[in-house]
């Protein structure tokens, strides 16, 4: 229990959401294990992994929940939004429909997640340049309009994957540390009541992050 892995200053729960097949599980495995599978099995229900990163000399442990993309699973997966302080909303840059559905996912977050949850829009599969169906600029301005941070990633060639997680975790950290809310290290799960007091000012914080990552 006292292993290095278990020592952290902050524990943040982050969910991965988005349509089926956009690469959520591969983003997770790339970030937590540096692994990628061209054909990875569909996620059933939810799956879980963690990784710790350093921000300002503090150890931040990210507890990441990967969810099934099919609509049928919503009733189950919605339970996993509880206590989440961040969400990576993923679409596939080569499949326009997955981008169109982003609005539905935002509604879902509004309905089920904490209202202060930090959301990052992630256009995955940026390696598929020749198949691009969603323009970077289009997604970027959509994100701006909706107060989301934005980044394009490729779990296949690793582009921006660490950056995406790093950015959202940093953003959450800034908000939390500003408010001087510390999660007691012995807790394994962030409890919703500890999360509620966090207030996010989208205009300032998400702008800051956007500048770092969307180029």
């Amino acid at each position: 229990m006292s292993s290095k892995d278990d020592e952290y200053d902050y524990l943040f729960k982050v969910v991965l959401i988005g349509d089926s097949g956009v690469g959520k599980s591969n983003l997770l495995s790339r970030f937590t294990r540096n692994e990628f599978n061209l054909e990875s099995k569909s996620t059933i229900g939810v799956e879980f992994a963690t990784r710790s990163i350093q921000v300002d000399g503090k150890t931040i442990k990210a507890q990441i929940w990967d969810t099934a993309g099919q609509e049928r699973y919503r009733a189950i997966t919605a339970a996993y939004y509880r206590g989440a302080v961040g969400a990576l909303l993923v679409y596939d840059i080569a499949k326009h429909l997955t981008y169109e559905n982003v609005e539905r996912w935002l509604r879902e977050l509004r309905d089920h997640a904490d209202q202060n949850i930090v959301i990052m829009l992630v256009g995955n599969k940026s390696d598929l340049r020749h198949l691009r169906a969603v323009l970077t600029e289009e997604a970027k301005s959509f994100a701006e309009r909706n107060g989301l941070s934005f980044i394009e990633t490729s779990a296949l060639d690793s582009t921006n994957v660490d950056m995406a997680f790093q950015n959202i975790l940093t953003e959450i950290y800034r908000i939390v540390s500003q408010k001087q809310i510390r999660d007691p290290p012995e807790g394994d799960v962030i409890r919703p009541e500890r999360v509620e007091p966090i207030n996010i000012q989208p205009s300032t914080t998400s702008d800051g992050v956007r500048k770092q990552c969307c180029q």
Binding site: N37, S40, K41, S42
Partner: peptide, 12 residues
């Protein structure tokens, strides 16, 4: 659509 997404990645 959903079936077509899932079947190819069943047993990689």
């Amino acid at each position: 659509h959903q079936i077509n997404i899932d079947v190819p990645r069943m047993n990689p």
